[in-house]
Design a protein around this nucleic acid. Structure first.
Lengths: 340, 340
DNA sequence: CGCCGCGACGTTACCGGGAACATAGGCTCC
DNA sequence: GGAGCCTATGTTCCCGGTAACGTCGCGGCG
C-alpha cells in the first residue's frame, strides 16, 4: 500500500524516480553508455534489480526502429537437417541478443508460399531474414521482395543478391563418391533429392563432377523427393535398372527406404550393393545395416549464419568465412563389391 | 519528386493525409470498427493498398500492451514429436494472427534452463506461453515464474495451475499393450523414457495399468533416455534380462536401437521378440523390420494448443476439449510368440 | 421548435523507450 | 580568473499506433 510500490509494471520513469535520477540516466545505464558515475550506475542497478525491471521491447523497437528480431523461413520442416539448423540459429541469435520468428513453408505449394512467409515476417517486424533449405524457385521469389532487409540464404553457391552460408555440399558428395571408388566400385548411381532444391542440386553436381574426374561412367540420376518412401520405390525397381554396385543417396531417409526396398527384393547390403547416405541423422547409426553417410555440422552452420547476419546488422564486416566442411562417417552399409 | 510520395515507410498519418481524413479514421478502418461510411472506408483502403502500408507492430504492441505473440518452450528439440508440434503451433498461431517465438531448452541442464527460457521470452514480449514436452521439474519451475501470462503445457494430466492439451499418452500405451496381449504375449516389458518426462511417465503408467488390468506379470521398467543408443544398450544386454517375448518402447528411436541390438545379438524380430514403438516417425515404416507403433497426431495437438490459448487471450471460454486420441499402426515388428 | 441521441468523424493524450540538445559543475590552461 | 572543454545528467520531443473524449450535422419526437 505504500506509495513507492505500484502494482503496474515498472518502467524507466518509475525506476528513475525511485533512484532519484532522470529516466534518461536509467536508460543510459541500461545501455552501457559511457559517462555514468559508478555510484549512479550502482544506485540505478539496485533499483532495477529490486523491481525486477524488464525493458519493454515494443517501446524500444518503436524508438530505435529496430526489432532485434531475425525472421527465419524453413522450407522443409520436420526433417532433421533444417530443424537442427533452425535450432542452432535460434540459439546463436539468443546469444547475440536477438530473437527469432520462424515460418515453416509447407512443401506442397510452390512460389506463392515464400512470398506470404516474408509478408508475415515483415508484418511482425524483423531486422533480417534467414532462409533455410530453399528451392531455387523460392530464391527467385525472394529476390523480388526482400528489398531493404539483409537476407541470408543457407545455400552453397555465392549469390550477388544475398548473404550465404552453407555446409559444402559438393565436398560432401565428393567424399561419399571417393569412398565408394576407394572400395573398388565402378558403377555408382545417385538417388537425388528434387533438383529444384539447391542442396539436392549441389549434391548431384558433386557426384557427377567427381565421377567425371575419376573417368567413370555417369549414369542418369534418379530423382526422389527426400522421403524414405521414394527411396523404397527406387530400390524395389532394381530389376529394371541398369546394373550398378553402389548408391549415393542424397539423404539418409532415402537411403533407409533403399535398404528397406532391397530387403524386400532380396538384395543384400552391403554384399550386393553398397549404400551411402547424407546428413547422419541420430538414428542412422542404428539402421540395419548401419548407414555410411556424410555428416553435416548443423550447429556450426546455424551459428555461422547468425554471425554473418548480426555482423551486417551492427555494421561490421561479415568477413569471408569458408564453408563448413562435412565429414564422412563409415559404417556397415558400404563394402568392396563382390566382383572384385 | 512530387510532394505526395515520400521515401519513408508510410504510417497512419501519411495514409490519412493522402486520403483526406484523420489518422484515427484510418486506424478505425484497419481495425474494422463500426460506424465508418463505406465510401470513407474504400477511400482509405485504396490509399493503403497503393502505398502497400503495413502496420507497425511495435507501435501497436506499445499502445495496446499486447504483443500478439506466443512464446514456446521446446524441451526436447530435434526430435520429430516436439518439432512437429512446434510447427503445428506456429502454423495455427499464424492463422489466428499471432506470431511465435520459440526457445529450445537444451536437454543437459536441469531446472535452471526453463527459468532462463521464460525470462528470455518475456523480455521480448509475449502474451502467452506454450510449453512442449516438459519434464516434471520444468513444470515446477514454471509454476513459480509464470505469474500473469496464460500458460499452456502440452501434457496429459490436468493441472490446476496451467492450461493443458495433449495426445492421450496412456491410451496410446494401452493400445500398444493390448495389441501385444491380443497376439498372445504374456511377458511384456517396457523400455521407458526418462521418468522425469511427463510423457514418459504417462506411457509407463499406461503400460503398467493395462498389464495389471489384464492380470499379467509386471516386470520392472527399463529406463532409457529416448535415444536409439539407449535402446541398443538395452537390447544387447538381453541375455542378462529376465525372459520376455515382447517389448513396448516409449518411442520409435529406442525401438530402432532395440532392433539393432537384437540383430547384433542374433535375436530375430518378430520371430523371437515383438517390438512396439511410439510416435510413428516418417521413417519408422522403413525400419527393418518395419515398426509397429502408436501414431500421434501432432498437427491436431498443436492446433488444439493454440485454439485454447487464443480463446483465453481473447476472453472466450476455452471449453472442455477431449484429449487427442492416438492410433495403433501395425507393421512387421510384432507377431504371435513362438511358444504358442 | 428546441432538445436529444446517434452516426461519423476529429483532437488530444498517452504507451515506454531513445535521440538530440540543453545545462551545470569541475578542471585545465593561458 | 575567466574562456573553453569535458563529464555527468536533465529536458524535450518523437517513434507510430490506440483509447478516450469532443464535435458536428441530422433526424425524430414531445
Amino acid at each position: 500500500m505504500s506509495a513507492g510500490s505500484s502494482d503496474d509494471k515498472p518502467n524507466l520513469r518509475s525506476i528513475a524516480s525511485l533512484a532519484g535520477v532522470s529516466h534518461m540516466t536509467v536508460s543510459r545505464v541500461l545501455n552501457d553508455h559511457p559517462n555514468i558515475r559508478p555510484e549512479t550506475r550502482e544506485k540505478v542497478l539496485r533499483v532495477v534489480e529490486e523491481l525486477n525491471y524488464q525493458r519493454n521491447s515494443a517501446a524500444r523497437a518503436l524508438a530505435t526502429r529496430k526489432s532485434r528480431r531475425i525472421g527465419v523461413i524453413v522450407d522443409r520442416p520436420v526433417e532433421i537437417g533444417p530443424d537442427s539448423t533452425l535450432r542452432a540459429v535460434e540459439h546463436a541469435a539468443r546469444e547475440a541478443g536477438y530473437s527469432v520468428s520462424s515460418v515453416a513453408a509447407s512443401p506442397d505449394d510452390d512460389g506463392v508460399q515464400p512470398r506470404e512467409a516474408v509478408a508475415y515476417l515483415t508484418a511482425h517486424g524483423i531486422d533480417a531474414l534467414c532462409v533455410i533449405a530453399p528451392r531455387a524457385s523460392s530464391v527467385d521469389v525472394l529476390r523480388a521482395i526482400t528489398d531493404g532487409i539483409p537476407t541470408l540464404i543457407v545455400k552453397a553457391d555465392d549469390d550477388p543478391n544475398f548473404l550465404t552460408a552453407s555446409v559444402d555440399q559438393r565436398l560432401g558428395a565428393t567424399l561419399a563418391v571417393q569412398h565408394l571408388i576407394d572400395l573398388g566400385h565402378r558403377e555408382i548411381v545417385h538417388v537425388a533429392g528434387p533438383l529444384d532444391w539447391l542442396d539436392a542440386r549441389a549434391r548431384e553436381r558433386g557426384w557427377h563432377a567427381h565421377l567425371k574426374k575419376a573417368g567413370l561412367h555417369i549414369p542418369p540420376a534418379f530423382v526422389g523427393d527426400w522421403s524414405a518412401d521414394s527411396g523404397y520405390e527406387f530400390a524395389v525397381a532394381f530389376d529394371e535398372l541398369p546394373p550398378f554396385t553402389a548408391i549415393f543417396a542424397a539423404n539418409d531417409q532415402m537411403a533407409l527406404g533403399i535398404l528397406h526396398g532391397f530387403r524386400d527384393r532380396g538384395i543384400r547390403v552391403p554384399e550386393d550393393v553398397s549404400v551411402v547416405g547424407f546428413d547422419d541423422l541420430p538414428v542412422s547409426r542404428h539402421f540395419l545395416p548401419t548407414l555410411t553417410t556424410v555428416r553435416q555440422d548443423f550447429h556450426a552452420l546455424g551459428t555461422l549464419a547468425v554471425e554473418i547476419l548480426v555482423a551486417v546488422l551492427e555494421g561490421d564486416d561479415p568477413g569471408k568465412r569458408s564453408r563448413i566442411a562435412p565429414e564422412l562417417i563409415v559404417r556397415e552399409s558400404t563394402a568392396r563389391p563382390r566382383s572384385m
